[in-house]
């Protein structure tokens, strides 16, 4: 998705194809448009996650079609489905294995809050074990809602100073 990026500027006073910009915005521009998801497909929401990869919704328009099942290669974990207490430690371990920077989308009511499964076996919200960036409502959310969450996450990433820690 090409959006007007005010951080990038074309300087006409310098000859040649030169774009002047801040390193932060260039890095963020790269990060936002190639966000490889780690599909944590646990339950029903995983089917909508697969639908969003299908032809109609086509998540690749947002640069996030490269589903990597290896946590080492992915940037954004999409927790799609009910997280049970039995599954929670595995989820946390997979999150720990992901390389920085990393983001988490809690897709659906179950991942966000336990949803309709108020029971002894269900973790009441994945935010109890991993930090969540975007929550998506719905049971399950429609693929459009997931795409919206992805755009919201991209906007968040664009605002994040990537080199904050280097200068300190």
């Amino acid at each position: 998705m090409v959006s007007p990026n005010t951080d990038l500027a074309y300087d006409s006073k310098i000859e040649g194809d030169i774009i002047v910009s801040r390193l932060d915005s260039v890095v963020n521009w790269i990060r936002t448009n190639s966000m490889w998801p780690m599909p944590m497909g646990l339950a029903c929401c995983a089917i909508e996650l697969m639908s969003s990869a299908g032809a109609r919704f086509d998540i690749s328009r947002f640069g996030a079609e490269v589903m990597r099942f290896s946590p080492r290669q992915s940037d954004c974990m999409i927790v799609a489905g009910t997280v049970t207490y039995k599954m929670a430690p595995h989820l946390r371990r997979i999150y720990d294995q992901m390389a920085e920077p990393k983001w988490v989308i809690a897709m659906g009511a179950c991942a966000s809050s336990g949803g309709m499964y108020r029971s002894y076996a269900t973790l009441q919200g994945v935010d109890r074990i991993v930090p969540v960036d975007v929550y998506v409502s719905g049971c399950p959310p429609r693929p459009e809602a997931l795409l919206d969450a992805l755009i919201k996450l991209q906007n968040k990433v664009k605002r994040t100073p990537s080199f904050k820690n280097l200068t300190a």
Partner: peptide
């Protein structure tokens, strides 16, 4: 198994 045991029968 049991990674998706959500307690449907108890519910």
């Amino acid at each position: 198994l049991g990674y998706l045991h959500r307690g449907d029968e108890k519910i």
